[in-house]
Design a protein around this nucleic acid. Structure first.
Length: 885
RNA sequence: GGGCGGCUAGCUCAGCGGUAGAGCGUCUCGUUUACACCGAGAGGGUCGGGGGUUCGAUCCCCUCGCCGCCCACCA
C-alpha cells in the first residue's frame, strides 16, 4: 500500500544514492549507442547553489535524462571552477575577519596554501547541492580547472598561442582595480551612471594673448588627473580655437608648459570644445597622446594614490582627496570658471565595487580579433546555433568589435603564467621551467608573478575536461559536445571564449547548440541580490517542497525570454501536481490496476481505453518533440495537462463505472490500461520529476511483470500516432462535452445536490445519441442523476434544456427557477443569433469566399450549420418551457 | 548613442493571421469509496495608443508611449 503522500525528504537522498551507486550516471559503454554530451558550466568551487544554478542545471538534467532514456550514450560532465578573483577575495576577507595578516605579508606560498585549505573545506558543497537537485552528472569524470590535467592544457594553450603570435605582452592602459590591485578585462568593468559634477578650468595661455584671449577653458569630471595632463586638444576645424593651436598653456598647480594640439577627437559641441589630454589615465586621451607622441605621465600608484612627477604635497594622497585639493587650489588661483551638475558614467570593478582606474602597465594580451574570425564564421554557417536564435546577434555584435583580451591578473590564485624572464629583458614562454631554463641557457630566470584570467581556463573547458591535449577516448567520443546550457550574462565571458579556443585548438566547434536560459528574478521581477534581501535559496525550496516541485517549476517557466519571476505559490502548485500523481497511483493500486505482461495498447476494445491510449500517444509525441527542440516549458506543461486534466479528471472518472462494475473482460482490460497509462506517465515525466516517478516506479512494481533496473535507465516510449483512434476520440469528446455542459446547466438551474432527477435524452443527431446511449450509465453517474434514457418527447412536467445539440430534460419543476431558466435560454438564443449573423455576413462576403482558404470557408460553414441547429433546439425548448410554466 | 526584450483576465504568463487561453487569486456549490496538496461551476480582457497591409490582425508592417536589459570613449 502506498503511503498517503510522497515524502521527498526521505526519498530523494535515498533514491539519489541508489542511482549514483549503480553507475547509472555514466554513459553506457554500448558501442552502438549514439553519444550525447553536455559539459556543465562549472560553478565556483567554493560557491553555493543559487537559483540560477538550479534552473540551469535542472534543464541540463532534463535533457540528459531524456537522451539517456532514448538509448544514447549520455554524458553530463561535471566540475568546478577555481574562480580566481572571487575565491581569492573570499579568502582574503576571511583572513581579515579573523584578524590575520594580509596576503602580501603572508607571502604567496602560504596564501595559496590557505586558499587550497578553504577549497578543501567548502569545495564539495556545491557539488553536494547539485546532487540534492537530482543532477545526474557522471561524477566519476568530475574535473576542476586547477587540477593537474587542466593546468597542463592551460600551459599548452598559452605557449602555443604565444608561439603563433596570438598572445603577447604589451604596455598599454588597462582597467585597473585599485582594491585588488590587478588588471581586469573590459568585461569585468561595470559602467554605472551617477549624478556628478563637471568642472570648467581655465588654463592660462603662455605668451601674448590672441585677440585679447589669454586662457583656454577645459571641462573635466576628473580634476585630479590634470596633474598628469600632457596637452590640451581642440578640433582642427573649431573656429574658436584654431588660432591657438601650436601655442602653449601653463598647466596650473603642476606649473608645467603643455602644448595646444589639433585632433579630431574633441567634439566642439561638448563641454568647452577644448579637452585636457591625460594620456596615462584615460582611454581616449591615451590614443590622442600616442597619435601626437606625447609623453605619458603616470600620476597614481597601484592603490590609486597620487604618485609620480607631481607637487610633493600630493604624493601619497588618495585620488578623492587629491580631487578636493585640486579644486580648492584652482579656485584659489581664480581659475574655476564653472561647475555643472551632470550624470557621469563611472567604471566600477564588478567584483570589488570600486572605481576602476585606467592604468599604464605591462600585461599579457590575447589577439582576440584573429581568434574571433573562425568563431564568427562557425555561427554564421550554422555549425553552432543559439537557442533562442536571437542571441546570435548579441554574439556577433561583440565578436565583430572585439578588443584584445587582457589575460594576466596580479593575483595568486590561478594558473601561473608560464613565462620566465632573465635579467636582460629576455622572455621565455614554455610549458615547464626546465624548458624555459634550457632556452635561457645559463642565464638565471624567474617566472612571471601573475596568474591567468579565470576565463582563460574556462575557455578550454569543453575539451580540456575530456583529456585534451591527449587524444583520449572521451575526446574522440564526446567532443564536440551537443548542447551547452547557460545564461545570457556569460555569452561574452564564456561562450565566446570557448568558441574561439575550441575552434583554434581542436578545429571544431565545442558545442553544436547553445541553449540560453532566462534569468531568475524574485516574484516582483527584481534581480535577486544579497543587499536587497530577496535572494531565494533553492535548497530551502527543495527542503520545503521537494526537488521535483522546484525542478518542475523552473522547467515550466523556462520558456520566458529573459526573466523568470519566481513566486513560491507556483512551486506549491507543482508540489500539488506531484501529490496528484501519487494519488492517482494510489487509486490504481486500490482498484487492482496492475501491469499486465505483453499489454498491447493497440488491442484495447473499450472506447475509453482506446481513447486514453491515443491521448497518451499524442502526449508522448508532444513531449518528445518539445524536448528535442529544447522547448522545456512545452514538455512540462503538456505533461501537466495530460496527467491532471486528461488522466485524472476524465479518464479515471470514465473508468470508474467499469472498475466498479462486474468482473469480466472489460474490467480486466481497463485495469491493465490504467496501469499502462500510469507507467507511461511515469516514464514521460521522469526527466522533469525524477524522484517521485522513480519511487512510484518501484512502488508499482508489485504484482506486475518484473521491472528491470531503474526508471532512469528505462527506454523512452515509442508510441506511434496510429494508436490514436479518431472515432473514440470524437465520441469520448462528446461524452465529456455532454457531462460538462450538463453539470454547468444543472448548477445554473440550482438543482440541489440531494435531488436525483432523471435525465432524459430525447433528441439529437443519431451518432451523438448512440454515443450517449452507450455511455448512459456513466453519464448518469457523473451527472448524478438516477437515469439517462431516450424518450420520443419531453414528458409532462419536465423542464427541457439544450446540451450540445441534444435536448435534455429534468422532470423536476419544483427544483427549478423557471423564470431564470427562461432568461438563460433567451440570452443563449440572442448569442446564437449574433453568431449566425456573423457567419452569414462572412460567407456572404464575395471577397471572403474568393480569397479565404477552402478549409477556413468550410469551417465557417460547419459552424453556421451548428449554430442553426442549436438555435432550432433552443427555440423548441423555449416553447416547451413556456408550456410547462 | 546603438542594440535586444517586454507591454494579453486582479497577479504570473501561454498563444502569434480566422472574433482570446492556463495556473494562481476571487466568488458560489460540494462529507460522490485516489486526492481538500481535492472536485464542480461562475465572474473577469476594446490582447499598451494610433496608423497601414489583408476578405479578416492580439498575431505581419510603420509609428508613438511606457518598463527592463546589454553594449558604447564622450571630456
Amino acid at each position: 500500500m502506498l503511503d498517503k503522500t510522497f515524502d521527498p525528504k526521505s526519498a530523494e537522498p535515498r533514491l539519489y544514492a541508489a542511482w549514483e551507486a549503480s553507475g547509472a550516471f555514466q554513459p553506457t559503454d554500448n558501442p552502438a549507442a549514439e553519444p550525447f554530451s553536455i559539459v556543465i558550466p562549472p560553478p565556483n568551487v567554493t560557491g553555493n547553489l543559487h537559483i540560477g544554478h538550479a534552473l540551469n542545471n535542472t534543464l541540463q538534467d532534463v535533457l540528459i535524462r531524456f537522451q539517456r532514456m532514448r538509448g544514447k550514450a549520455a554524458l553530463w560532465l561535471p566540475g568546478t571552477d577555481h574562480a580566481g578573483i572571487a575565491t581569492q577575495m573570499v579568502v582574503e576577507r576571511q583572513l581579515a575577519a579573523a584578524g590575520n595578516i594580509g596576503r602580501r605579508d603572508m607571502g604567496r606560498e602560504a596564501f595559496v596554501a590557505k586558499v587550497w585549505e578553504w577549497k578543501a573545506e567548502s569545495g564539495d558543497q556545491i557539488v553536494q547541492q547539485l546532487r540534492r537537485l537530482g543532477a545526474s552528472c557522471d561524477w566519476s569524470r568530475e574535473r576542476f580547472t586547477l587540477d593537474e590535467g587542466l593546468s597542463a592544457a592551460v600551459r599548452k594553450v598559452f605557449v602555443q598561442l604565444y608561439k603563433q603570435g596570438l598572445l603577447y605582452r604589451d604596455k598599454r592602459l588597462v582597467n585597473w582595480d585599485p582594491q585588488f590591485q590587478t588588471a581586469i578585462s573590459d568585461l569585468e568593468v561595470e559602467t554605472r551612471e551617477e549624478p556628478g559634477k563637471m568642472w570648467w578650468f581655465a588654463y592660462p595661455l603662455e605668451g601674448e594673448p590672441i585677440d585679447g584671449v589669454s586662457e583656454i577653458v577645459i571641462a573635466t569630471t576628473r580634476p585630479e588627473t590634470m596633474l598628469g595632463d600632457g596637452a590640451v586638444a581642440v578640433h582642427p576645424d573649431d573656429e574658436r580655437y584654431k588660432k591657438f593651436v601650436g601655442r602653449m598653456v601653463r598647466l596650473p598647480i603642476a606649473d608645467r608648459l603643455i602644448p595646444i594640439i589639433a585632433d579630431e577627437y574633441p567634439d566642439p559641441e561638448k563641454g568647452s570644445g577644448a579637452v585636457k589630454i591625460t594620456g596615462a589615465h584615460d582611454f581616449n586621451d591615451f590614443q590622442v597622446a600616442v597619435r601626437h607622441n606625447l609623453s605619458l605621465l603616470s600620476i597614481m600608484d597601484e592603490q590609486a594614490r597620487m604618485a609620480g612627477p607631481i607637487p610633493e604635497r600630493y604624493l601619497g594622497k588618495p585620488r578623492e582627496e587629491a580631487r578636493k585639493m585640486v579644486l580648492e587650489e584652482i579656485e584659489a588661483l581664480g581659475l574655476l570658471r564653472d561647475i555643472e551638475e551632470k550624470l557621469i558614467a563611472r567604471p566600477y570593478g564588478d567584483r570589488s565595487g570600486v572605481i576602476i582606474e585606467p592604468f599604464l602597465t605591462d600585461q599579457w594580451y590575447v589577439d582576440a580579433k584573429t581568434l574571433a574570425q573562425p568563431a564568427i564564421k562557425a555561427v554564421e554557417q550554422g555549425d553552432m546555433v543559439f537557442e533562442p536564435r536571437n542571441w546570435e546577434k548579441t554574439y556577433f555584435e561583440w565578436m565583430r568589435n572585439i578588443e584584445p583580451w587582457c589575460v594576466s591578473r596580479q593575483l595568486w590564485w590561478g594558473h601561473r603564467i608560464p613565462a620566465w624572464y632573465d635579467d636582460d629583458g629576455g622572455v621565455y614562454v614554455e610549458e615547464t621551467e626546465e624548458a624555459a631554463q634550457a632556452a635561457a641557457g645559463n642565464k638565471s630566470i624567474r617566472q612571471d608573478e601573475d596568474v591567468l584570467d579565470t576565463w582563460f581556463s574556462s575557455g578550454l573547458w569543453p575539451f580540456s575536461t575530456m583529456g585534451w591535449p591527449e587524444n583520449t577516448e572521451d575526446l574522440k567520443r564526446f567532443y564536440p559536445t551537443n548542447t551547452l546550457v547557460t545564461s545570457f550574462d556569460i555569452i561574452f565571458f564564456w561562450v565566446a571564449r570557448m568558441m574561439m579556443m575550441g575552434l583554434h585548438f581542436t578545429g571544431e566547434v565545442p558545442f553544436k547548440r547553445v541553449f540560453i536560459n532566462a534569468l531568475v528574478r524574485d516574484a516582483k521581477g527584481q534581480k535577486m541580490s544579497k543587499s536587497k534581501g530577496n535572494v531565494v535559496d533553492p535548497l530551502g525550496l527543495v527542503d520545503k517542497y521537494g526537488a521535483d516541485a522546484l525542478r518542475f517549476t523552473l522547467t515550466a517557466m523556462s520558456g520566458q525570454a529573459r526573466d523568470i519571476k519566481l513566486a513560491e505559490q507556483r512551486i506549491e502548485g507543482y508540489r500539488n501536481f506531484g501529490t496528484k500523481l501519487w494519488n492517482v497511483a494510489n487509486f490504481c493500486q486500490r482498484n487492482g490496476c496492475v501491469r499486465v505482461a505483453g499489454y498491447d495498447p493497440a488491442a484495447a476494445t473499450q472506447q475509453v481505453n482506446r481513447w486514453i491510449v491515443g491521448e497518451t500517444a499524442k502526449t508522448a509525441e508532444l513531449v518528445t518533440k518539445a524536448l528535442e527542440a529544447a522547448a522545456f516549458d512545452e514538455a512540462a506543461n503538456g505533461l501537466y495537462r495530460f496527467i491532471w486534466n486528461t488522466v485524472c479528471d476524465w479518464y479515471v472518472e470514465l473508468a470508474k463505472p467499469i472498475l466498479n462494475g462486474p468482473d469480466g473482460a472489460a474490467k480486466d482490460e481497463t485495469r491493465a490500461t490504467v496501469a499502462w497509462v500510469l507507467d507511461q506517465c511515469l516514464v514521460l515525466l521522469h526527466p522533469v520529476m525524477p524522484f517521485i516517478t522513480e519511487e512510484l516506479w518501484a512502488q508499482t512494481a508489485e504484482g506486475g511483470p518484473d521491472r528491470e533496473g531503474f526508471l532512469m535507465s528505462t527506454a523512452w516510449p515509442e508510441l506511434p500516432l496510429s494508436l490514436v483512434d479518431t472515432v473514440a476520440e470524437r465520441e469520448i469528446g462528446l461524452v465529456i462535452d455532454a457531462i460538462t455542459e450538463g453539470r454547468s446547466v444543472r448548477q445554473g438551474l440550482n438543482v440541489p445536490a440531494s435531488a436525483k432527477p432523471a435525465l432524459l435524452v430525447i433528441e439529437g443527431a443519431d451518432w451523438q445519441l448512440s454515443t450517449l446511449d452507450a455511455n448512459a450509465a456513466l453519464v448518469a453517474q457523473l451527472l448524478r442523476v438516477s437515469e439517462v434514457r431516450r424518450e420520443p418527447a419531453v414528458p409532462e412536467g419536465a423542464i427541457p434544456f439544450v446540451v450540445n445539440g441534444a435536448t435534455l430534460a429534468l422532470p423536476v419543476a419544483e427544483f427549478i427557477d423557471l423564470a431564470a431558466e427562461k432568461a438563460r435560454l433567451a440570452k443563449e438564443l440572442a448569442g446564437l443569433d449574433k453568431e449566425i449573423a456573423r457567419f452569414n455576413g462572412k460567407l456572404g462576403n464575395p471577397e471572403f469566399v474568393a480569397k479565404a482558404p477552402e478549409a477556413v470557408i468550410e469551417e465557417n460553414r460547419e459552424k453556421l450549420a451548428e449554430a442553426e441547429t442549436a438555435k432550432s433546439k433552443l427555440e423548441s425548448a423555449l416553447a416547451r418551457l413556456a408550456a410547462v410554466g
